[in-house]
């Protein structure tokens, strides 16, 4: 998406970044209504680990700081707790904007820590192949790659889950997997962002 109606003298090509984010968000984002009150940043259970509070991120989006916003770890640290969403006095769809930023960062390859996007991608791969999530496959691959050092400590738990039959070693494939694949393939062509 290009900023066509920004004056040519405007040095920032991303002045319309906010509109771009809004357009790619599921519901009506209402991002332009943010009054920078900080209710979201105050609500975040994981704010301490974020580069920017959600409020700051929205200010950056408004300022057209596209790369900085997409590089921020904030959307990846957001745990989708929806505290901010119900408290925001302006009814901004904050959590959904976070999802939008993640997908934009993935597309622009601007995320700095690969753990989260790769985890999501692995999860999604399983769904696209089986129609169901496959925790065992996901967990083993993910932990081996990103947290090898945590494995020894986690072994008893993992074993527990296996022996208590809380994790299955083989994935379940749905009957309509071909139908699902076709739907998802078409959906990808219909994506809201260009």
């Amino acid at each position: 998406m290009t900023a066509t109606d920004v004056s040519p003298a405007e040095p920032n090509h991303n002045l319309r970044f906010l509109e771009e984010v809004s357009a790619a968000t599921a519901g009506v984002s209402r991002l332009e209504m943010c009054i920078q009150c900080g209710t979201c940043g105050g609500s975040c259970p994981s704010a301490d680990d974020m580069d920017h509070t959600p409020r700051m991120l929205f200010a950056m989006i408004r300022a057209g700081m596209r790369d900085e916003a997409l590089r921020s770890n904030t959307p990846w640290i957001c745990v989708s707790c929806y505290h901010c969403v119900v408290r925001c006095p302006q009814d901004v769809h904050i959590a959904d904007v976070m999802y939008t930023l993640k997908s934009m960062a993935v597309r622009a390859k601007l995320y700095r820590d690969a753990k989260a996007p790769e985890f999501s991608q692995t999860f999604v791969d399983a769904i696209e192949n089986y129609g169901r999530s496959f925790e065992f496959g996901l967990a083993t691959r993910h932990y081996l790659r990103h947290f090898p050092l945590r494995l020894p400590g986690m072994a008893p738990m993992g074993l527990g889950l296996l022996t208590k039959q809380r994790m299955s070693m083989t994935p379940h494939r749905i009957d309509g997997i071909d139908q699902l694949k076709a739907i998802l393939a078409r959906a990808k062509e219909l994506e809201l962002t260009s």
Binding site: Y99, K102, S103, I183, L184, E191
Partner: peptide, 25 residues
């Protein structure tokens, strides 16, 4: 019958329309 995974919190952060189509099914 023959439901599929809802995508949890993962699919929404990758692709929007596919994520909703997955739930839509």
């Amino acid at each position: 019958k023959d439901w599929n995974c809802c995508g949890a919190t993962e699919y929404l952060g990758i692709n929007l329309i596919p994520a909703y189509a997955l739930i839509g099914r």
